[in-house]
């Protein structure tokens, strides 16, 4: 029962995150959508580790990996936003319809 609640919550977070990542125009808001999806993944990993897999040690590592992914996503994402802004004064997804130049 507990596990179902947790996993449904994770599914909802992933759904909302996907909506955000697809619908937001601002790069920064788009990244918030990605973060929200990772949040759902983290919740699911914690829930499965604790309630289905009997706390096997490798399970917590998955959560650590998700956190590392979030850190990388943030750092690279913001670096790209800064680079694009310097080059084109753009902070919206529409402004970079082409990857050239």
């Amino acid at each position: 029962m507990t596990l179902t609640i947790v996993l449904l919550g994770a599914a909802a977070l992933i759904g909302i995150g996907l909506y955000g990542a697809l619908s937001q125009q601002s790069f920064v808001m788009l990244m918030m959508g990605l973060e929200l999806m990772l949040n759902g993944a983290l919740l699911a990993a914690i829930g499965l580790w604790s309630l289905a897999l009997g706390g096997m040690p490798e399970g917590q590592l998955l959560a650590i990996v998700v956190m590392a992914v979030m850190a990388v996503e943030m750092a690279v994402g913001f670096a790209l936003v800064v680079a694009i802004y310097r080059k084109r004064q753009a902070d919206m997804t529409e402004s970079i319809g082409t990857l050239a130049g």
């Binding site: 179902t4 996993l7 449904l8 994770a10 599914a11 909802a12 992933i14 759904g15 909302i16 995150g17 996907l18 909506y19 955000g20 990542a21 697809l22 619908s23 937001q24 125009q25 601002s26 808001m29 919206m92 997804t93 529409e94």
Partner: peptide, 23 residues
């Protein structure tokens, strides 16, 4: 500040429905 709002909402809803069904 949103674009392709309907597509995004449908995609998000489908993702949730699919995952929830799997759960």
């Amino acid at each position: 500040m949103v674009h392709q709002h309907r597509v995004a909402a449908v995609a998000g809803g489908l993702a949730f429905a699919g995952l929830a069904a799997a759960v």
